[in-house]
Structures are given as C-alpha cells and as structure tokens.
Design a protein around this nucleic acid. Structure first.
Length: 468
DNA sequence: CGCTTTTGACCTGCGC
DNA sequence: GCGCAGGTCAAAAGCG
C-alpha cells in the first residue's frame, strides 16, 4: 500500500472497510450519487434503497405545464394599437406571473435540495457513528491482541534464551497496565509514584510492581514506563488532544524558568494517564507535552487518535528499544532513522532519560507534510493543529517504516505492535477524514465556513471538541 | 455548592 | 547520611 495505512475513500471502500454499508462516491466538488454497495460491488439508487419517494417530481411537471400554457402564440397578430398596449400589460402580467412561477419552481427545487441535504447529512452522521464505533472496537481488540501477543512473546523469549532474559521490564509493566485497565481495577495508584505509594502503603496486593521478588531476574533499572513527549509551537497553555485534564501540581524544574504543570486525565475515575506540560526554556513558544500511560475508558473520536498513537508509540518504543545492559540491540539513532526517515530531527528517543521517552518535534511544520502531494497540514502558526492529527501522522510514518524496514532477525516488531500502529494510522489518517470532510462539504453545497477549500480544517472544527 | 486551580509540604530516588 | 530534584498530595483559595 503506497500510502501506508491511509484510506482512500474512493478506492478503499470497495475493499470492504464499511462492509455492506452505504458509501459515498464523489467526483470533483459534488456528490454525484450515494449508492449502497452490495456484495457484487454494484450500487442501486438510494431512493430504491431507502424507500424514499420524490414528492416534488409531480408538482414540478404541473408547474412546467403551466409555464408552457402561458407561452401560447396564435400567430394571428389581430390587435389594434390600443389593444396592443393592453396586451403589453397582459404580457407584462404574464411575465410577472411567469417570474413568480419560476421563483416558485426554484423554491420548490430549493426545498427538495434541502430535504436531500438533510437526508445526506443523516447518512453522513450515521456513517461517522459507524466509523467511531469501529474505531473503538478496533482499539479494544487491539489491546486484547496486544496483551496476548506480548505475553506469548515474553514466554517464548524466556524459553528460547534459556534463562537469559532479554525482555525488558517495561514490557511487563505495560502489559500489566493494560490488563489492569481491562479488568477495571483501580489504576489511579499505578503510576510511577503511585506504585511507590502502593508499595509504601502495601495496600495493593502482595506483589507491587516496584518490588521485585527475590528470584526475579529482571533488571530493576529497566522497570520504567514509556513516555511520549511532544514539542509543538503553541501560545495556548495546553495543546488540544481531545481529552479532559485536571491539573494536580506544578513545579519549577531545574534549568527551566518556566514551571512544569502536571495533569491527569479526568474523563474517567481512575484513568492512569498523566501528562506534563512545560514550555521550552530556549524558545518559550514551544510547548513540551509528555504523555504517560494508557486510557482505561472509551474515548471521544477526537481523543481516539491521540490515545491510539500514544499507545502505539509507547508500544513501539518499548518493543523496539529492547534495552539490555550492554547497550541494547537497537540504538536510539537506529530507531530514529528507521522510523522517521522523513525527518531525522523530528523524533528522538532518549535512552538516558529516567524513563524511555520518545520525543516528537512538531515545531518544524514543513517536515510534517505528507509525501502525498495533495496533502497538506491544515494549520498555520501560531495556532497549533489539533494534536491528534499531527501526532497521528507522525506515528503513521513510524508505523510504516517500523513495519517495513526493521530487519526480521533484529527485534522484529510484534504483530501487536503492527496492529497497534495500524490502528493508530487508521484512526488518525487525514486522508480518510479529509475525504469525509470533502463529502460533507459537497453535501452542504460549499456552505461551510471553510471557504478556502481546506477540508482538513473542517475536520478540525468537527472533531476538535476539547474542553480545555 | 461543587469543581478546579494553586501552592506548600511531603515522599522517593539518586548522586556524592 | 545528606542534599537535590522530580513527582504527588491535599488543604486553601478561586470560580461559575
């Protein structure tokens, strides 16, 4: 697939992304028809499918006949001059009447178009809802699959290495985290310091994560959480990522005059996701946001991309870095070059940081532009783009290359990783959202406020419901 | 009144 | 052991 996991609405639908549901076929700026695609790929008229009747067609014929009657010409020229003036009046009246009728006709047409617009809007909403449901289902499946696959891999590797453990503790923790989230256990106390606190309190079971059993061969130093750090230019105090956050602390960090703020996700009680927000010391227009953890609750569409991509990035980071005591199989440089060949300075993986952290530098917008010539990111400084769009694109690039270029004999990304990355790509793919936005714009007859034709902005306005 | 933000205190890990 | 820095808590203050 040349565009990676990108979905092209015109083509991809035929391979069954929507199954047997209705899809849009659009050309240039207008939707020419909406045909439900059956299993053979052929369509039928929507009216036949939906049972809709065109109530205006008969009325239109009547009006047209009326207009034809008005134009009867005997050709006899039997009028006097006076009569002619009268006839002129009559003709003028007829003209007025005809205009009125034409006006009525236009109004009727307008009403018909409005009704059709309503119907199409309903269909778009329906499809959009289906898409959202699909995304959430996929995300859920992905997490299940990831758990199974990672556990399986860990067991496999352990047996293969015959005691030489190469699986980083991060893997286990990530896995445990996911399991905990799915089992619905309270996860508020599972973050780094939370673990410490749990250990201190001794209130969560007999085996806190931080306390290795005596026989545990895993190195303590690797038991850390992955973090995804994002650098983006923004005047706003926080970047928009679709989630709701509550500030729980603020600290002055060493070497930076700007305070660091600590937020936790408040979309669900006990959601373990936290983030730190801090301005860059060198350039205070740059906002550095660091995410940690996975959401333990359903997410709105706007946040799905971010959550999926964060999870994918963390997962890829943990599975790809595979740190070992003697330097690891893949060094950060390799990862960076491999995963993000489009911009060597856009992402960096920190091995020396207290936590394995992948940093995405989104401050250089040109590097974010897709190779695809007709794609362009919709934002212009200083207003930052919605985070999930940009981040999704970045991770999409990562997923493509991590899937294609990692050599099979060296830390091949697991199926779970690829699935996770694919999910991220699908949920964040601007091609799909752009096509959807184009369809909506077409249906609404270009009445969107987005007059410059930038469909991505329409998506932004539609999806970006961040409440911050 | 309930929720959010602020802010000082506290805890832990780490380096010396 | 001590000091420092990062991270979190929780009471107080602010706000709608």
């Amino acid at each position: 697939m040349e565009k990676g996991w990108g979905l092209d609405l015109e083509n991809s639908d035929r391979v069954g992304f929507f199954g047997g549901k209705s899809v849009f076929e659009y050309s240039s700026n207008r939707i020419s028809s909406i045909f439900p695609v059956d299993s053979s790929g052929r369509g039928e008229h929507p009216a036949a499918h939906i049972g809709e009747v065109d109530f205006f067609s008969e009325k239109k014929e009547v009006v047209k006949k009326e207009i034809r009657d008005l134009n009867v010409n005997t050709g006899l020229q039997l009028l006097t001059a006076r009569d002619r003036s009268t006839v002129d009046d009559v003709s003028s009246d007829a003209e007025d009447r005809r205009s009125k009728i034409e006006l009525g006709l236009i109004q009727v047409e307008l009403e018909r178009m409005k009704a059709e617009n309503q119907r199409l809007k309903g269909m778009v909403t329906h499809i959009s809802n289906d898409c959202t449901t699909l995304q959430m289902h996929l995300h859920s499946l992905m997490q299940h699959q990831q758990n199974d696959t990672q556990l399986h891999q860990i067991v496999e590797r352990k047996s293969e290495e015959k005691g030489v453990v190469l699986v980083p503790r991060q893997f286990l923790e990530l896995n445990k985290e996911m399991n905990d989230e799915q089992s619905g256990s309270s996860s508020d106390e599972r973050t780094l310091s939370g673990n410490k606190r749990v250990e201190r309190d001794g209130s969560e079971g007999s085996a806190p994560i931080k306390s290795p059993k005596p026989a545990d061969p895993l190195p303590e130093a690797t038991m850390r959480k992955a973090r995804v750090s994002v650098r983006a230019r923004s005047e706003a105090p926080m970047i928009s990522d679709g989630c709701q956050w509550r500030k729980y602390g603020q600290k002055m960090a060493k070497g930076n005059p700007c305070p660091r703020a600590y937020y936790r996700c408040t979309m669900a009680v006990g959601c373990p996701v936290r983030k730190q927000v801090q301005r860059c010391a060198e350039d205070r227009t740059i906002l550095i946001t660091t995410y940690e953890g996975n959401h333990s609750h359903p997410l709105p569409p706007a946040a799905m991309s971010m959550a999926s991509t964060t999870s994918a990035a963390a997962s890829m980071l943990l599975s790809g870095s595979m740190p070992s005591a003697d330097g690891g199989i893949m060094n950060p440089g390799f990862l960076t070059r491999t995963m993000l060949p489009c911009s060597s300075n856009m992402a960096a993986i920190s091995a020396s940081a207290p936590f394995p952290t992948i940093t995405l530098d989104l401050t250089e917008s040109p590097s974010l532009q897709r190779p695809d010539p007709h794609f362009q990111l919709p934002f212009a400084p200083p207003t930052p783009p919605p985070f999930h769009q940009v981040f999704g694109q970045v991770i999409q690039n990562q997923s493509q290359f991590s899937g294609l270029q990692m050599s099979p004999d060296k830390s091949e990304p697991s199926y779970a990783d690829r699935l996770s990355a694919a999910t991220a790509a699908i949920t964040s793919d601007p091609t799909f959202t752009a096509a959807l936005a184009a369809a909506i714009s077409s249906i609404l007859g270009g009445s969107q406020p987005n007059s410059d034709g930038d469909v991505n902005n329409a998506v932004v306005n539609t999806n970006d419901k961040n409440t911050q």
